[in-house]
């Protein structure tokens, strides 16, 4: 797994963005950029170069699930792996996220080990 890939973390809470960014840094990923909702994430994604997307669901402006649908519908972005990190915990929501095309789903609050495990798993699958 290349450690210099560009990762976009989307969450409306600056604390959560910082936590995820620090955990990614622990895993060796230092090229991490941030956005505070789907709307601000879109132009960043469209500029190109983002190779992994970590997004929350419940955000003002544009929600994470809409962002996932948008990314999957855009041929230029569709192949970006997406990890959803959210407090939304209803079965129906998890199924909807899976159907929308997320590659992993982590519910908040999470542990460092769980986040690391899910990220590793996503990259393992992409590699295989």
């Amino acid at each position: 797994m290349k450690k210099d890939i560009k990762i976009l973390v989307v969450d409306d809470f600056s604390t959560m963005r910082r936590i995820i960014k620090n955990l990614l840094r622990d895993l060796g990923f230092n090229n991490v950029i941030e956005a505070d909702d789907g709307k601000t994430a879109l132009p960043i994604l469209q500029q190109g170069g983002v190779q992994f997307l970590v997004t929350d669901w419940n955000m003002p402006g544009m929600t994470g699930i809409d962002l996932v649908r948008f990314v999957r519908a855009d041929p230029k972005l569709a192949s970006i792996p997406i990890l959803m990190v959210t407090a939304e915990a209803k079965r129906e929501q998890i199924i909807a996220a899976a159907q929308a095309g997320v590659n992993g789903y982590v519910i908040k609050p999470f542990t460092a080990a769980v986040l690391k495990e899910k990220i590793d798993k996503i990259f393992e699958r992409i590699g295989s």
């Binding site: 604390t15 959560m16 936590i19 419940n58 609050p109 460092a112």
Partner: peptide
């Protein structure tokens, strides 16, 4: 790292 991750309470309670 545990202390860092524990700060996620701010997101949960904030929501």
């Amino acid at each position: 790292t545990g202390i860092l991750v524990a700060q996620s309470y701010q997101d949960i309670t904030g929501q």
